[in-house]
Design a protein around this nucleic acid. Structure first.
Lengths: 249, 249
DNA sequence: CGGTTACTTGACGCGCGTCAAAACCCGTGG
DNA sequence: CCACGGGTTTTGACGCGCGTCAAGTAACCG
């Protein structure tokens, strides 16, 4: 279980490490069963309110998306962020206690599995079923980690954890202490993700910067100087982080 | 989609409403494919650290369980609560950034699907596959709702929401304004569930009581006087709540 | 170059955590 | 029957983290 284990920790797209990205395989499987409907969207678009492909299962081929819930007064919580190689089930969005919405953070391309085909796909293609099971496990796993920080951690820990999660998942990390990558979100949306106000996101990034742990250029370009200390602030088990970094590199 | 819709909102066990509980069917299916291994545990026991049935998928036949994550300093967050008719996948518990643990809140009986049999079960029994898909959707749905409150709502909203969620899911609600039921948790664990300190849980329950919305006898016996107002405090769409109550009754 | 959207910084207040002590509840054993 | 002890709930005092309001700066775009 090293495979599903390392996969599940941060929901890393392990196919991407193996050379040939998993989406390639998935696309093949999709094409065999359903006419592979591919759609593209610009950054900042909303998904799922269109009449045409309503209530489908999407598969992210490229780009970042965020699914969020919001209260009547406009308060918003980003519940998860989807990266290439992951599934999005818009069937979750209807009939809930609060409004759900999925938006693109970058330009994206998605494969669309129409509603009716999904169960058939799962039953006929064990590989897709297994992959989907692992994807679901990864989603639950990282949502749980985030709930833990939402409920019980300081702003510093939440920001630090988010930086590491997104860095690892986007496969932006190489070996070594320093890591540099870009997060296609505003501080406002980072706040919606971490349960903080945009103002406090700014302050907290400033604190981390003054501590010498990271640098930012003021536009979500992140440079991590001391990833071990950042992990300590994020309250992540450093041994586990090491393992992740090794398998990611 | 009224079926999966009403199911997914609060993860209600819709089988329980339909007369014959779904677990009965599930048990039959399990028995056909695997020797149905049934285990019982007392209240307050820990699950999954035993050597025998390690890393299995469980199916709750009776009783309440809580799965939680905790930080190195002892801070704990209950990530979800499992009721009869729901699945528990202990494979999620290994290899994560924080320790996961599953404990019983009441005496429970569980059906155990050994690790190797799970994927086979899904592939061979479409009914179980479909059921599991819906269960996963319900878990994600209610975890999202809770994340929204964890990140963006006051203590009152979190407590109010939790009371309604647990009342609805345990099918304790009948028609009418008043609802009475028992939650088998201490204020401490309610705090771990809502991201509050036990002290503040107590205060907040006191506030709700002084507002005339609920009564408690000091031991987690809850009596809801005005469920509409409680839903308003919980920031739940009242129309949706109405629908849930109707389909639950 | 003006308008718009993002980031930054300061001042202020409140919600909720923490510490601490008291009241209660229940099971156990003398 | 009461004494005792551990776990839970309740209540008060106090302080800090983070939200909010507001003003100012910087970057981007037509």
């Amino acid at each position: 279980m090293t495979d599903s284990g390392s996969f599940s920790q941060f929901g890393i797209c392990d196919g991407a490490r193996a050379g040939r990205p998993w989406h390639a395989e998935a696309r093949l499987a999709f094409q065999r069963t359903t006419s592979l409907h591919k759609i593209e969207r610009a950054a900042g678009a909303l998904l799922g309110m269109e009449a045409d492909a309503a209530k489908a299962v999407y598969f992210v081929l490229s780009g970042w998306l965020a699914s969020s819930k919001s209260l009547r007064n406009g308060q918003r919580q980003i519940v998860d962020i989807q990266l290439p190689g992951e599934f999005i089930d818009t069937r979750l969005s209807d009939m809930q206690a609060s409004a759900t919405q999925i938006e693109t953070l970058t330009p994206v391309t998605l494969a669309v599995v129409p509603r009716g085909n999904w169960m058939r796909l799962l039953q006929e293609y064990p590989e897709i079923l297994a992959r989907h099971e692992r994807d679901v496990a990864a989603v639950l796993s990282r949502m749980s980690e985030r709930m833990l920080r939402l409920g019980k951690s300081s702003a510093q820990a939440r920001i630090a954890y988010t930086l590491i999660e997104l860095g690892l998942r986007s496969s932006a990390f190489g070996p070594g202490e320093s890591q540099e990558f870009h997060i296609p979100m505003t501080q406002q949306s980072l706040g919606d993700f971490t349960g903080l106000s945009s103002v406090h996101v700014c302050r907290t990034l400033g604190q981390l910067e003054r501590m010498g742990v990271v640098s930012t250029n003021g536009h979500m370009d992140i440079l991590i100087h001391d990833i071990e200390q950042l992990a300590a602030i994020a309250e992540i088990d450093v041994a586990l982080l090491r393992g992740e970094l090794n398998s990611a590199a």
